[in-house]
């Protein structure tokens, strides 16, 4: 009887210690998927996806099976990165030429509403001074459109220059048929 209790108790002790040690040693810090997803997102928190920011969208994708093609500023590249992380098939993105915000300086009244809205500080201007967009910094997030009281901001397709031009893929042999 004593022997049985001691041996079983000893076994239980060893197993308990082992489990406790393993729990400490192989401890997993939270869910890394959300962090990984957030990493590939533009981080501008533009809200185009319908979530209040990139992190909430990342959480929704990771935990609630949200669609992976809701990030227009990230474009196809981001969608593919999300697909790779989640291990799902890529979803079609709405075809949209890369655009930049354009401020009609005639109509701009210099209210700075768009400057406050721009998540990447790509709009410059001051009170009662016409504003303008730094094209290179604009991330195509549309966030400045809505706050403008005179509706003078439009998204225009980015102009292709010699320095941004990219070669098109050959049609391939199947173009024959």
């Amino acid at each position: 009887m004593i022997n049985a209790i001691l041996s079983m108790g000893g076994l239980a002790l060893v197993a308990g210690l082992g489990l406790g040690f393993a729990a400490k040693k192989f401890h997993v810090e939270g869910d890394p998927t959300v962090d990984k997803l957030e990493e590939v997102m533009p981080a501008t928190n533009c809200g185009n996806c319908g979530y209040p920011g990139c992190r909430p969208y990342a959480e929704a994708v990771a935990n609630e099976d949200e669609a992976i093609n809701l990030c227009p500023p990230g474009g196809t590249a981001t969608m593919e990165a999300i697909a790779a992380i989640m291990g799902v098939d890529p979803a079609p993105m709405e075809e949209r030429a890369p655009s930049v915000a354009y401020i009609d300086e005639e109509k701009c009244i210099g209210c700075t509403a768009c400057i406050k809205a721009c998540p990447v500080d790509a709009i410059i201007g001051a009170n009662k001074q016409s504003h303008t967009v730094i094209i290179d910094e604009c991330t195509d997030c549309d966030k400045c459109i809505e706050p403008c009281p005179t509706d003078c901001i439009t998204m225009v397709p980015k102009e292709v220059t010699l320095y941004t031009w990219s070669m098109e893929k050959p049609d391939g042999p199947h173009a024959l048929h």
Binding site: A43, A77, P119, V120, A122
Partner: peptide, 20 residues
Amino acid sequence: QTADKEKKRGEIAKQRAKAK
């Protein structure tokens, strides 16, 4: 090259968003 450039741009945008 375009993908690299985009990646760099994305990083810069992230930095700018963080700075803001």
